[in-house]
Amino acid sequence: FDRLFDKIAVRFFARNLGVDPTALKDRPWETYVQAMAEAVRNSTYVEKTCLFGVDSRVDARGRETHRDRTVCAGNSDVIEVAHRYPDQFIPFFSINPLRPDALDLIDEYVEKGCAGAKFLQNYWQVDLNDEALVPYYRKLRDLRLPLIVHIGSEFAIESKKQYEGSNMLRLPLQAGVTVIAAHMGLGQIGHWRAPWRNLSQNPVWFDRDYFHILEMLEVHENLYGDLSAMLLPLRARALKHLAGQQQVHHKLLFGTDYPVPFTIRFNTHRLEREEKKRIAGIQNPFDRYAAALLSFFPEDNPLYTNHQRILTPPHPHEQD
């Protein structure tokens, strides 16, 4: 928590995670890890969660050019935490495809139990439709590893907007990768002259990428969308509309984007006052998030079980 924004927000952040602000500020890593593991262990709804970090930005030669101190976390850290708490976490790796040894690193981290890949290409400034990435995609396809791709706005880290759009999904889908479009392409601030439209529940003012992803979910068998960070106001406004798109519910995945803070009372989902009060009173952050989504997607909705079609069993080495 060395950025000015983090120093200001740390108390709200701690309260949202249910941890002591002083401990989070003085011992951020260990306090955060323990709180996260404890929250999963005590959750009513979440039995286990996929855990991933964010690789750093590198140049064409694989030399690191930027590492965000707040957001970036190495694969070795993710794997160490997942091995320390095997009942709570499933590790995913984050390997910038510009690294010259990226394909070898995939093999290494799969051997250590990683079950999928995470891209933050808008931070890396990588065009996912670059044909040079095809060997990377084929590797993921052959290993049956799902690839989570950030689609939509990004405010927690430096981001290049041209790499945030749903068009980034074209080549990995063509290569046969099972792709997860994180955040459903929502969250852009696009109505500068009428800023209130960015929070409107009228679908006319929703992000174009959102509707493009809805169309793509019906066309591409290997594409899924996740509901992580959907309780942020720029995205929560679409929950009612998405709940009505039953033709794609078999392609949606539950996700929280923990530890990103979210609010229940001051939001755009328009839940009833008593319902908001009830959900806001839930202490466990995973359960609080799940309770909000359950207001739109009941327990029998396939989005809570669709992950079973994507996650493969751990590597044989990890089962010994």
Rank of each mutant, 00 (worst) to 15 (best):
L169M: 06
D68L: 02
Y258W: 11
Y136Q: 05
G176T: 05
D257Q: 07
V248H: 07
E218R: 15
R27M: 13
Y136K: 06
K161R: 15
R41L: 11
M168V: 11
N301L: 08
R99E: 03
A23E: 14
P313M: 06
N267G: 01
D104Y: 06
D26V: 09
H269S: 07
D6W: 13
P314S: 07
A115E: 13
I90D: 09
A35G: 11
G116I: 01
R141D: 10
Q174I: 12
P91I: 01
P261I: 02
Q125R: 15
C72A: 06
R11P: 07
A35Q: 06
D2W: 14
L294W: 00
M184A: 09
E47K: 10
F254R: 01
Y137N: 06
L231H: 05
P146D: 03
E274R: 11
R270V: 08
D207K: 05
Q174R: 14
D257M: 07
R270W: 09
A37I: 02
E221T: 13
L24C: 03
Y85N: 04
E80C: 14
L173T: 02
Y289D: 03
G74T: 11
A238V: 04
E299M: 11
L239M: 02
E30K: 09
N306L: 01
K240E: 14
M36R: 13
D26G: 09
Q283P: 10
A182V: 09
F1W: 15
F12C: 13
Y304L: 08
M230V: 14
V134R: 07
F211Y: 08
V134A: 04
P100M: 02
P261N: 00
E154Y: 11
A194Q: 14
P298L: 01
F92V: 04
L140V: 03
V33D: 11
D130C: 06
L252M: 08
Q125I: 11
R278Q: 04
E221P: 04
W192R: 12
H220R: 10
P100V: 00
R69V: 14
S159Q: 06
P86Y: 00
A37M: 05
E274G: 11
E272W: 12
R15K: 12
E272C: 05
S166T: 08
L103T: 00
F262I: 07
Q88D: 09
H269A: 08
V219C: 14
L231G: 00
Y304F: 02
H191G: 03
F92D: 02
K25W: 15
D59F: 01
K112H: 04
Q125N: 14
V33Y: 13
S200R: 02
A60Q: 12
P100Y: 05
